[in-house]
């Protein structure tokens, strides 16, 4: 079973993604901000991270920067944010995000992208 890490400071958002992903048979872990996400990635390996941008202590950009500079597992990262400006998208990609989505995300949209990034998409 593929394992996905959800990183968002809002409990409802984490539960929403969890519900969608678990219904598609993914195993899910949660983190409340970038620091906790890094700690989890250091402890267990993930196939994918779904990461918010605005979070306390270490935001999504800071998380990406730190993830990419450390010699630890490098799962692909989907950034999901309320920030809709082109500059935010560019910054996320520059820091090594694999995909940038804008909130709120519909279940089918999330699953499509997750499957694509995990190489499970059907032709």
């Amino acid at each position: 079973m593929k394992r996905i890490l959800i990183v968002d400071d809002a409990a409802t958002v984490r539960l929403y993604y969890r519900t969608i992903l678990e219904s598609a048979n993914y195993s899910v872990e949660e983190a409340i901000n970038g620091i906790e996400a890094l700690e989890k990635i250091m402890l267990i390996s993930f196939d994918l991270c779904v990461v918010d941008i605005n979070m306390p202590k270490l935001d999504g950009y800071g998380f990406l920067k730190e993830l990419r500079r450390q010699a630890i597992d490098q799962p692909p990262v989907i950034m999901i944010s309320t920030e809709a400006q082109a500059s935010d998208r560019q910054q996320a990609y520059r820091l090594g995000a694999n995909l940038y989505l804008i909130k709120p995300v519909k279940p089918s949209e999330l699953l499509t992208h997750v499957r694509l990034l995990l190489g499970e998409a059907r032709a």
Partner: peptide
């Protein structure tokens, strides 16, 4: 305990 509830000043090291 985790620094994730405390401060952004430090880097996480494994």
């Amino acid at each position: 305990e985790s620094m994730s509830r405390i401060s952004s000043l430090f880097r996480v090291r494994k």
